[in-house]
Amino acid sequence: MAYSDKVIDHYTNPRNVGTLDKSSHKVGTGLVGAPECGDVMRLQIEVGDDNIITDAKFKTFGCGSAIASSSLATEWLKGKTIDDAMKIDNMDIVEELALPPVKIHCSVLAEDAIKAAINDFRVKNGMEAIESEKAHH
């Protein structure tokens, strides 16, 4: 399968690979996927006082599209409020990276990882977790 230039770019030069201190109350961590399914994403956000995401890091086990989707997600997260970040839709990722239908699940996983990270942060800081209206599984 041929990858789009944007997938190749994110794959070759992944943005924001790394690990944030998950015990910090400012950090939210989302770990989604399963090794048996061939993709696992861990996405972390660091949130400032006004609920603005100041940093985002990822590590991903998966195919090129999964790595590119998570790399793109970290780029988009930085500077957004957690409420705006919650609105990131997997189809935005599909469009930006020109993912083929067989790779849409990679974008779904990235959206799930974003929501899981935000909810982890929310719960840590005394807020309720937000249920996603989309049922992916």
Binding site: T19, V32, G33, A34, P35, C37, V40, K59, L109, H137
Partner: peptide, 17 residues
């Protein structure tokens, strides 16, 4: 990273999709 930290991956409840 988890393997290197000594975490047993089988002990994690993965959300299969």
């Amino acid at each position: 990273e988890m393997f290197k930290e000594g975490i047993d991956l089988d002990s994690i409840e993965w959300a299969e999709h």
